[in-house]
């Protein structure tokens, strides 16, 4: 028993050094060497400042931008999280109704337009950077109005939405989607 106790303590120390120090440091070194941009958060610079991460959704509520999904944490990442409202939640039912109403009014679309699900429901992380291409197209009129775009420019934005749409990864994995931050970043450069 005494022998086992001593072994247990020494063994825990060695495992801690091996898997708790050497392993994460070695992995950080290799990651920084092979994929430095990704290992550091896929940050995007604009005017010499960090404008955000390509992977982390951010809040847009101005009419000159495309809007992301509803977020339970209002896109404040500390900490990430969801609404955790259940399938029979009265609160969620009211939220969905209100989101539908606002989406129709703000985007100047008709009451009967089918609104993609992700615009009515909050994401799991609260930081979902994507929406579906359909959701982006439905917002086009609003953005065009917000930016006073002419017909030629609107066609350019339409083309942009098309270009920024990601199909399934490696032709196999995931759903068609568009990164809102990425789209808005490109939108700012349309003249």
């Amino acid at each position: 028993m005494k022998t086992q106790t001593i072994i247990a303590i020494k063994f825990l120390m060695i495992m801690t050094i091996m898997t708790g120090i050497i392993y994460p440091f070695l992995m950080t070194g290799l990651a920084q060497l092979i994929f430095p941009a990704r290992a550091n958060g896929s940050l995007v610079m604009k005017d010499g400042r960090i404008a955000g991460s390509e992977l982390v959704g951010q809040k847009f509520d101005s009419n000159i931008y495309f809007w992301p999904r509803p977020s339970a944490i209002d896109y404040n990442p500390i900490p990430s999280g969801a609404s955790n409202l259940g399938p029979t939640s009265d609160k969620l039912k009211k939220q969905v109704k209100e989101r539908r109403r606002l989406f129709v009014i703000n985007n100047l679309i008709t009451d009967t337009t089918a609104i993609p699900k992700e615009m009515l429901f909050a994401s799991a992380s609260g930081l979902d950077p994507h929406i579906s291409p359909e959701s982006a197209l439905l917002q086009l009129n609003r953005v065009a109005g917000g930016r006073n775009l002419d017909e030629v420019q609107i066609q350019k934005v339409k083309q942009l939405i098309k270009n920024k749409t990601q199909g399934p990864q490696y032709f196999l994995f995931g759903e068609p989607r568009i990164n809102v931050f990425d789209l808005n970043l490109a939108l700012d450069s349309i003249r």
């Binding site: 999904r69 969620l92 992700e118």
Partner: peptide
């Protein structure tokens, strides 16, 4: 439902 799910 997409509540609590990610688009990607």
């Amino acid at each position: 439902s997409m509540e609590g799910k990610e688009t990607r």
